[in-house]
Structure formats: structure tokens, C-alpha cells
């Protein structure tokens, strides 16, 4: 599968970018030691003018490169955590609904509908403004708007798998329904859900940035959204303050999308063959 992925140029490009980004996230303390929120030098150094600050400094004299590198960690942590919560919750609900059928299915799917009708961002906004911002809360808030996709996908897979002979064989064998649902059927519903996970991660990163932009992110972490928001005040005189974290955000999201799309294609091709 990996070889098949590497044969696609868009996946290769996205993958390389992701590797770069992941490397930055992992090596952040080495690449730019110290607190990225600390004042490092003169304020408003333009990018590419001072070798000490390749991307320049902001209005308070904080290193922009350090901010971008540490911002990756926040974005990655929130993106992955939110996606994990969304996929796990979605698959459990979807599997339960598809496997149980009848009234349980109806009730669970109406809950899914209700969550899907409200825009995910509004849900996150409401949740964070009520509970107060911290990384964990932001992750859960984003997952609230993202779990319905995995739920629908896994339900439709489970509905098809439920009628399979191997499920009948497991029932005849006397296997407990919970074991059939969780151990036999749910893993097979994973591939299509996994394929949309990349999109969920990308969406979560965007949502987190938007929340930070509105001042609802974790105040103790550097985030790209927060950097963009702070730069906004000097948009006329120092646009780079918003543009640089913006580019980082766009590149990250696009590279995740590229890999995710290619993964979906490869998995879809696999299912057909």
C-alpha cells in the first residue's frame, strides 16, 4: 500500500511536507530552544534581514520562526487528539447503531443528525466558551463537530457486514454479540474511516486556529491562529506577522489533504480488486 502511495506525485509531495512538519514538531526544543513566547530581540525585525531571526520578530520582539515551529506542536496535538476522539466515538456509535438495528439505530442516527445540522465550528465555539479554553477542552470541542462522519461511514459498513456469512458463523458458534461487533466487525469498518481521518485532522487544525484567532485557544500555548490574530493589529505595517503563520497553516492542511486523498483512492482501489 505504501509503495502504491509513493507512486502518486501528490501523495509524495504531501508526504514530504508532512515529514518536514512532523520533524519540526518533534525537534522543536532543539531547533529553537527556550520559550517561544519570550522576548528574544528587537521588535518588528523584517523577515530575511537578520540571520538571528530568519522570519523576523513580532511587535514584542518574539522570534517568529520559534513561534511557527512550536505552533506545529499545538496544531498537531490538537488535530490528532480531536481526530482520535472523533474517530473512536464515531465508530463506537456507528457500529452500535448498525449492529443493533431497529430502535437503537433510529435513536442513535437522529443524534448524529442533530450534531450534523449544527455547524461544527459553532458547536466548538459554544463548548469552549462555556467550559473555558485548555488544550483538552479544545480537542473535545472540535471532536464534537467531527465524529458524525466516522459514525455514518462505520454504520453503513457495519450494515453491509452484519449480513455476512462470517457474522452468522460467529453467532452460531455462540460468540457474544459485543465481541462480534467490536472484535469482528468494527476493525473491517476501519479502512474507510481511516481514509477520512486525514480530512478530520486537517479540519481540526483549521478549527483550532479559528478558535485561537477569536481568542478562545489555550492562552499558554503558541498557536498559529493566535499568531495570526496578534498580527492582525499591524496588518498594514507588518503583514508578514499574519502571513507567515498563515502559510504554515495552509501548507500543513494541504499536505494532510493530499496524503488523505491519495490514501482514500488507494483504499478504494483495494476494495474494488
Amino acid at each position: 500500500m505504501i509503495r502504491e502511495l509513493l507512486r502518486r506525485p501528490e501523495a509524495l509531495l504531501g508526504g514530504l511536507l508532512l515529514l518536514l512538519i512532523a520533524g519540526a514538531a518533534l525537534l522543536a526544543p532543539v531547533l529553537s530552544p527556550g520559550d517561544p513566547l519570550a522576548i528574544a530581540g528587537r521588535p518588528l525585525v523584517r523577515p530575511f534581514t537578520d540571520p538571528a531571526f530568519p522570519l523576523g520578530t513580532d511587535g514584542l520582539g518574539r522570534d517568529l520562526l520559534a513561534g511557527v515551529i512550536h505552533g506545529v506542536r499545538t496544531s498537531a496535538a490538537i488535530g490528532l487528539a480531536a481526530a482520535l476522539v472523533a474517530v473512536l466515538a464515531g465508530m463506537l456509535v456507528g457500529t452500535a447503531a448498525g449492529f443493533a438495528g431497529g430502535l437503537v439505530d433510529e435513536a442513535l442516527m437522529r443524534v448524529v443528525d442533530a450534531f450534523q445540522i449544527v455547524p461544527g465550528f459553532l458547536l466548538a465555539l459554544a463548548f469552549v466558551s462555556v467550559t473555558g479554553p485548555s488544550l483538552a477542552v479544545v480537542a473535545i470541542a472540535i471532536a464534537l463537530g467531527a465524529w458524525t462522519g466516522p459514525a455514518r461511514l462505520s454504520r453503513s459498513r457495519v450494515l453491509a457486514l452484519r449480513e455476512a456469512d462470517f457474522v452468522a458463523a460467529a453467532r452460531v458458534m455462540g460468540m457474544h454479540p459485543a465481541e462480534i461487533a467490536l472484535r469482528q466487525v468494527m476493525p473491517l469498518a476501519l479502512p474507510p474511516v481511516l481514509a477520512v481521518t486525514a480530512v478530520i485532522v486537517a479540519g481540526a487544525i483549521l478549527t483550532e486556529s479559528a478558535l485561537s484567532f477569536l481568542g478562545l485557544g489555550d492562552p499558554n500555548a503558541v498557536t498559529w491562529g493566535g499568531m495570526i490574530a496578534e498580527g492582525r493589529n499591524q496588518l498594514r505595517s507588518a503583514a508578514y506577522l499574519s502571513i507567515i503563520p498563515g502559510i504554515a497553516l495552509v501548507l500543513t492542511v494541504i499536505s494532510i489533504y493530499l496524503v488523505g486523498e491519495a490514501l482514500t483512492d488507494v483504499l478504494a482501489g483495494k476494495r474494488q480488486s
Binding site: 456469512d165 462470517f166 452468522a168 458463523a169 452460531v172 469482528q184 476493525p187 473491517l188
Partner: peptide, 15 residues
């Protein structure tokens, strides 16, 4: 009471 199905490929979990 146990059962054996027609299609032995479909009667087992794919893995």
C-alpha cells in the same frame, strides 16, 4: 448445533 456454510471464503473473518 453447529453449521457449515456453502461459501467457505465468506464464512471466515477476512483476517
Amino acid at each position: 448445533l453447529q453449521m457449515v456454510f456453502q461459501d467457505p471464503a465468506a464464512a471466515f473473518h477476512p483476517r
